[in-house]
Design a protein around this nucleic acid. Structure first.
Lengths: 155, 155
DNA sequence: TGACAAAGGTTGTTATAACGGATATTCTTT
DNA sequence: AAAGAATATCCGTTATAACAACCTTTGTCA
């Protein structure tokens, strides 16, 4: 039997292993979803990474977060939070402060303008999410979530 | 209930939807797998993309493939195959030819040196693949593959 | 208390992605 | 056979990743 992924990749040989097929499947699906989401964000001139950091800071609220805390929370670990924050700060979406009690850290907070941009995106993003994976239905999405978390659980 | 992904992302709020959780889960898992594979490839000074193109060309054999055919087969669609091929050509892993009967296209073929590098990586990559997702077992891997392909099937 | 280590960010550099436009070749149509 | 469309690749530019070296500030301990 020839799998759908094989056809997509125009490969005639079967995969060397089920493991390899799964890994390629995950990579390809992530790519597919990313492209769709980036397409939506492009209208607001945001990259996926920038959107991610704004969502993180919205979640953090008034207290804000330090660079290293942001880094821990990013979906795709960003080595270079400094310059990522530079870009969103230049556009007025966040503010930064070096607190007096610990002048090593830099605390970033989302601005009203940042909140406004995010709020505008909430409904379209939700709708896109549903369009992208909603057709699986709740049961299968739960199974998928379990399987993916099982992969990252090393034990 | 708090999911494992929520803990990873240090999020206290639940996800807005099951759909959103699944999409983040896929992104994070892809990231996790990619990091592991890139780590292995770094010893050979190859990026994941370069490894991918070499595997594609090995699969194609003597006939080789044009840039656009390579692009179609890439796991992550590469806008810029030309310069990707430049890099692997400079290292002697592929050769390129502009055939006389159609001078628009450029056919790339893997060299013996390229085959040698890939062959050295086959066993370690297989082993890594098994280490990364093998603990799910065949049944769950099959389910995972079905679910991921269902996502990309739009109908 | 002064030297040293650790924590936390920033900056420099090089390589790669992303995107659009430019160029060259072939095909189609009249 | 010339014009225009289509195909296929290449190049220019800007933005982002990746990695390492380098400040500052704070903590530790002899």
């Amino acid at each position: 039997m020839v799998s759908k992924l094989q056809i997509e990749l125009k490969q005639n040989k079967p995969f060397r292993s089920l493991e390899e097929e799964a890994i390629l499947n995950i990579a390809r699906t992530a790519e597919y979803l990313n492209a769709a989401i980036n397409g939506l964000l492009k209208a607001s001139d945001l990259t996926g990474t920038q959107y991610n950091v704004l969502r993180i800071l919205r979640g953090a609220g008034e207290e804000g977060l330090s660079c290293s805390e942001i880094s821990e929370r990013m979906v795709t670990k960003e080595s270079d939070v400094t310059r990522l924050l530079d870009r969103v700060e230049n556009r007025g979406f966040i503010s930064r402060e070096r607190p007096a009690n610990n002048r090593r850290v830099v605390i970033a907070r989302i601005t009203d303008e940042g909140l406004r941009v995010l709020a505008e995106l909430d409904a379209p993003v939700d709708e896109l999410d549903r369009g992208l994976v909603g057709h699986l239905g709740d049961e299968r999405l739960k199974t998928l979530n379990e399987l993916l978390e099982a992969i990252r659980t090393i034990d």
